[in-house]
Nucleic acid binder design. Structure first.
Lengths: 190, 190
DNA sequence: AAAAAAGTGTGATCCGGATCACACTGCTTA
DNA sequence: TAAGCAGTGTGATCCGGATCACACTTTTTT
């Protein structure tokens, strides 16, 4: 649980009592490779903070094609947030790509934490602010750039992921076909 | 200012004293058609809550092409949030399409409001939550759907905007060329 | 250790949507 | 009331990237 404390304290300092209270809301869960945390159609009770491992959050369209909304690693939060916040059935999947551990938090727990502790309300707001900014950037990138430029931006932001996950998933994240992505970097930097 | 109170109270009730305090942070500004609220390169001191009018938030790429991140109408918040939160120079523009009024709020004001009033921290968190969900949906739409489907989704979400703003802006929002969009609806619903 | 499955590179073909070009219809604004 | 200009429809052409097909490699399974 020390990782959780460090994670929150990057935003706001906590007293020991506060942290003792906070940690009662979280549950540790070990996740194996290829295990699904969330499946299409599920009722979504939890969001997850990644302590270890790599996960992909994705959507499957009517043609059966997968589109990756997010890769999550250490210190990233993930869920099907539409389903989680609005208490609807999930339309997404979360699958583990490298085994690890996550902490789960229920919506009720989240809301109680935020209501009881102004600090936690603040913490969640800061996290959402950063997430919002990142999503806006991604939208502009999708609207304005070529696959080449998107790949370069991805390499810049997540150099480690390039090595650790299958290229085809990167293609699904960038919105390009596997083949086109392959040609992008085999043709070098020109 | 009554509109502001109603807007906040859709999330959380306020006492008169609280609202009297809150409103001191906001400044009313009238905006004429074609006026720019934010310009590329500006230092971004404010975010805006739209009371009236329509605005477009857009980015201009290296080829001079415009890409619309957001249309904002009554009760929508807007700014170049990257520049606003991170105190950087703006990379975007906000232009008024239909004259109206906005309330402006500085970053310092926002943070003070959130720190002083737990209710306001909560309010901002709820707003960000909804925004985050909407952006995720837009990303999935951009990744997984055809221009046709994106146009239909836009019509469903913002039927009023279809009439009120030039079609070419809708094209710039959807990430399609003006011409392709025109052919989409002239070829009817098939 | 063999067999099956998943991931990848690369060529050939195809097609949706971008681009280019031009005409027509409003709105402005002088 | 004319002159300019933004907004729009529509045809013709072009091209980037998707799709299809297959070989090769690496990982997983039994």
């Amino acid at each position: 649980m020390e990782k959780l404390r460090t994670h929150i304290e990057q935003v706001t300092p906590l007293s020991d009592e506060e942290f003792d209270y906070i940690k009662t809301f979280f549950t540790l869960k070990k996740v194996r490779k290829n295990q699904f945390l969330i499946h299409d159609g599920d009722e979504i009770k939890h969001e997850y903070l990644v302590l270890q491992g790599i996960y992909k959050v994705f959507y499957v369209d009517n043609d059966g094609k997968e589109h990756i909304l997010q890769f999550a690693r250490e210190n990233w939060w993930m869920s099907d947030y539409t389903a989680y916040f609005k208490q609807q059935a999930s339309t997404m999947f979360i699958e583990c790509l490298e085994e690890g551990e996550v902490l789960s938090l229920t919506l009720l727990g989240r809301e109680k934490l935020a209501a009881d502790l102004h600090k936690m309300e603040h913490f969640f707001r800061v996290k959402l602010t950063n997430g919002y900014i990142a999503l806006q950037k991604r939208i502009l990138l999708l609207l304005s750039s070529t696959p080449q430029q998107r790949y370069e931006e991805f390499s810049r932001l997540y150099p480690d992921l390039l090595q650790r996950i299958p290229k085809k998933y990167i293609a699904e994240f960038l919105g390009v076909s596997r083949e086109t992505l392959s040609r992008l970097y085999s043709n070098g930097g020109k």
